[in-house]
Design a protein around this nucleic acid. Sequence first.
DNA 1: AATTTATGTCAGTCATGTTGACATATTTTG
DNA 2: CAAAATATGTCAACATGACTGACATAAATT
Lengths: 170, 170
Amino acid sequence: MEGAAVAAVAPAGNDAAWDIIELLFFAYRDFVGDPDEVLLKYAFGRAHHRVLHFVNRNPGMKVADLLDILNITKQSLGRVLKQLVDQGFILQKEGEQDRRQRLLYATPKGEALSYKLAQLQTERINRAFAELGPGAHDAARRFLTAMIDSDNREGVLRQIARGDRAKPRG
Amino acid sequence: MEGAAVAAVAPAGNDAAWDIIELLFFAYRDFVGDPDEVLLKYAFGRAHHRVLHFVNRNPGMKVADLLDILNITKQSLGRVLKQLVDQGFILQKEGEQDRRQRLLYATPKGEALSYKLAQLQTERINRAFAELGPGAHDAARRFLTAMIDSDNREGVLRQIARGDRAKPRG
DNA sequence: AATTTATGTCAGTCATGTTGACATATTTTG
DNA sequence: CAAAATATGTCAACATGACTGACATAAATT
């Protein structure tokens, strides 16, 4: 039996999924590395990038929603958010129904930077899909989705769908 | 400036690859999140995890090789490496041909921790592949490979192949 | 013998995360 | 209405893991 041979001694040593661990590490390293040079010119870091990206994708989102997505504390968020607001990349508007809320919007300036950064990443992604041929996009989407915690998965997908709805012009 | 006037341009707004940007973010967030709890108990961080992982996969690797893989400075590496050595997870052996080199090996203790952490990640990966059916592993491997910088790609693949060669005991 | 290489280390800084405590305005609830 | 809960912001202290720059040591190479 094949299964018996594989299960022998090494605990996880020849698990076929090991290559994915490493490929994911290298792919992600290069993927997030692209925007870093651009961010340097603005004296921003990856934290700013993440905030700007999700705000741009979800105009009018609440601070609390952003905290949930990023999985960080409000103190951590506060620092970078303040810089983005002070420098005119993001603006905060009082909620209309609930005036405690500070709804977040990317300014045109913020939108421009967000797109610029996203473009570097979509270029890499599209280059990969061009290499791999049709079906690759769908396969990648399904793989990445399956890698997300199942409890969060629906929320994430709704999140992404919301973003698609918010930007569909052109 | 009421946020309504989205007069600007929409350069990459409806690029189909946008969903991959976000899925990659969430998938990676959950993927690296798994080992974090375990690492907490050892007072280690992700930096330790990465070092231990690659050393375990490449017994006898040079410090310089590790620096190349991790893309960090020797000062950054030095701190976490010292802790791993002091606490008996990694040992350094003088190179035989070149006695300046400190070749790195995981101790049995280090190997055990490395496997424990990897197992959390392979469980997630295998769960995903089980969901997706046959062909998913290959598709994921090809996608992630295509996402790596093409200049590094060969080196990375050689690196992964070396790791596979180093661990096949059963 | 001089230079280069592999590694280590000291010292200071920065970015980004954490906890804990507290403040303020607003909405919801008893 | 008063009290409690909620959304957000802020101060202070601290940890991790990056960074730069300078310098040290031993061994290999020229």
